[in-house]
Write a protein that binds this DNA or RNA. Sequence first.
DNA 1: TCGCATCCTG
DNA 2: CAGGATGCGA
Length: 949
Amino acid sequence: MMSSEEETEFGLYTDKLLKKSKRTRQRVDAGEPRNSYSSIPNFSSRPAFLGGSNNIYGAIFTQQQQFGLFGPGFAPAKMLNELLGRQKPENAAEGEDVKFDNVIRCDNSPPSGEQLAHHMLRDILQGRKHELLALEQDMRNGQDHIINNNNNEPKTSPERNDVDAAIPVKECLTEASDRERQQAELMEEALNGMETESLPSPKVEPASPAKPEDAKKARVENIVTGMRSSPAPPQVNGCKKRKLYQPQQHDSNADRYVDDEEEEIEPIRQKRVEKNILKSQLRSMQEQLAEMQQKYMALCNRVEQGSEESQEIEEIPSDSEQSKRSAPPSPVTRSTPTPVPQPTLAQEVSKMKISPPGPPFHNGFLHNPHQHMSNAAAMYLGVSHKLFMEQEARLAKEAAAANAASNESHHIQSSQQQHSTPKSDHIQERLNIIRNLNPNGTDLEGLADALKSEITSSLSNLIDSILHRFVHQKRCKQQDAATAAEQLNKDLLMASQLLDRKSPRTKVAERPQAPPPPHNHQNQMVNGNAGCPSMMPVHNMNNMQKHSDLHIRPPMFQPPKPPGINAPLYGMTHPFCVNKPQEPPEQNEALSLVVAPKKKRHKVTDTRITPRTVSRILGQDGMGMSPAAMEPNSCSSPRPPPYHQPPPMLPVSLPTSVAIPNPGLHESQVFSPYSPFFHGPSHGHHMAMQASSSPPRMHKIERESPPIHHPPTLLHPALLAAAQHGASPDYGHMRAPSNGMNMDNGDRNSDCNSGDISYDGMQPTISFLCKDFSKNLSAHHPGISLTPEHSSTLTPMHLRKAKLMFFWVRYPSSAVLKMYFPDIKFNKNNTAQLVKWFSNFREFYYIQMEKYARQAVSEGVKNADDLHVGGDSELYRVLNLHYNRNNHIEVPSNFRFVVEQTLREFFKAIQEGRDAEQSWKKSIYKIISRLDDPVPEYFKSPNFLEQLE
DNA sequence: TCGCATCCTG
DNA sequence: CAGGATGCGA
């Protein structure tokens, strides 16, 4: 049953678990043995000792795959996978008996019966969407199965059959009937292919006794499959209302369908027709866009090349460039080529697509002498691609789903290609025209036409003007460069606005389409560009770049442009990340499934919005803490006078986000956000992203030596900046004297020696550290006390910090946490909150792990050792996005190691079918809990928080 | 019973 | 992310 793993070290422990688990518990995982992991004496924090042949470390070190007890001789992975894949139901069935027994037993106990039933139903409903569909079918057949959606009242009877009788006929039913009618009609008339898609497939899965685990598994699988099989829109809503507010999924069809539900049939049909029309029109527009882009690229290249060297010009320079760029990227470890046969359009698109960012991007565009131009181009493309890419994505989906449709689209495309691109004078005028059209709304076709011509014309205008400017710019050289860039920016801004306004719908889906970025820092910059057209004047850029941590954004800047999440088309080190190259339909999906996108009830949260406000802008300049302060001419806006407002007790929200890209920059260094600091600080520890480059082995070896001297993983500009300033006055001794920036050791126990970190929760006054700090302040600005008040309130910045800490510790004790949040006056509540945060972090983390592990399994990965998490793997990026959204710090290499281990553990467990067991994750948790590392000292520094911006 | 951890839900 | 439910160990 349990793998040998447990037997070795956790024997006793797991025995208990197993025994206990027999008890009537419906939830597999509820409750983790308290303090289990870290408190278990035998748990060494270092893998080295784990001698067991089965332990992961053994496997890792020996580079041999060992499936626990199964050993090498076990069936070929392929077989195994298939077996498992198909077996799942079986396994589940086995377990179900047990589980169900439990459930039944529970029924006898009055108090919990209801709840159990509720849970059960919930699980069923959540996990087995397809089942629901089947049920729906049943309903249609006259059976009285009633599906209860989660929003309805809890059933009183645990038995499924009873549900029928017990449930009052609710909207569900009516909705269903509505749909029924609609669908019937639609089927008959076969209005369009899309509709038929939405019909529930008669696929029936015998409503087996619901087993929670099963349901859970199903859920996860749903997520996974959802990620993978986006082309084929999963079941369309049953009576699952919850599905509805689940992300603005690409599945516009479903959405539409849902929306239409309530309305009369007639209008629905009309709308559909209209939509189709619009769709085709959009398609044509895309075509044109593509064309124009090509032209544009070609022109750009010609111009550039002409000026540089007289090199041969290729037909489509962009292509060549692209190929150059895309070639080098890490060879896919295990290529699971999923080159979905793309229709011609898609091919074209792929050509057009800017090589998914990352390093290649830099090499390509950014290095050329005319960077401002290139950047502008990139930006432009980013903007204009929104619409295009989205549509392309949808197209791909549809093509996969309905073959018939593809032909049509081709026709349309080709026919539309003939469109000429009319030119007109001013965008504004046209905008007005369009605005006038909108109100009527009735004439959608007209509108579409208008939009079409509008976009095309304006775009062509844009391109022309851009080119003109470019040429002109070349003549005028640097002097004019700045202004030209500004102009470009304006143009681009206008363009983006134009596009946004015109196609509001695309807006929704566009985010995921953002150019993907292998190398986050850089990419974020790039993406930021596309997302935030409003740039700073070029002349400011130089200063800015020197302080990449001090991103002063245009007031209007709205961060919500998370770095592209799309998987890069290439460069996936991670085997199972390789797949969805052709799946523009957001990689996000799975993620969003996990993390509900729109929750209104944040308290401390919403990290996207930066709290540190005015304090940063106002307060900081006097403090000599911000890099900016050192800079005489930093930023266009002269630093505010030395007076300070009382530091806001509670952080005010400011838009935060990634650096503002400087479109106009021509210095290459600009694009390595951290570069400015690499040389600055005395410790040039440029541990810079070895990302995927650093061989995993290294980490492993690293870990072997207990004293582990963690490589200076930090690189947070803020820190570096701080280091710079450390030279100045008192600041220097704020840090541990010996370590300086090498915050290596931060041993939990030893860190106290820093002395200054004495945290006394009760002291109303400032702590040592704060005193120090305040001394500085007052020294520089008498009368101003910027003492980081010992607040008991955890701010969003604390949250960020906590997230960053997660890279080192997954299971921090509350003591450790307190130590690392010296500015917090801890009490039960905020301690719990902080702990809860980490719990949440873990949750997210493990969900991701499981998801990807399952994906790997289902994709036929054989050996856990084949799983690698590179810096460019999707998994890695997802995690980084979650915990290190703005790339505040360099992700410690150990974290990647941990991730990899976790992934492998999950993978093995799943592969071996252990996931059928009740608490199969626990063993994994235990393993992972041992992989915690000491958090770097600098996390304790108040400045760190400060710099988290 | 309490503290802690997970899972689920919103 | 926060609340609540639940489980487990002490």
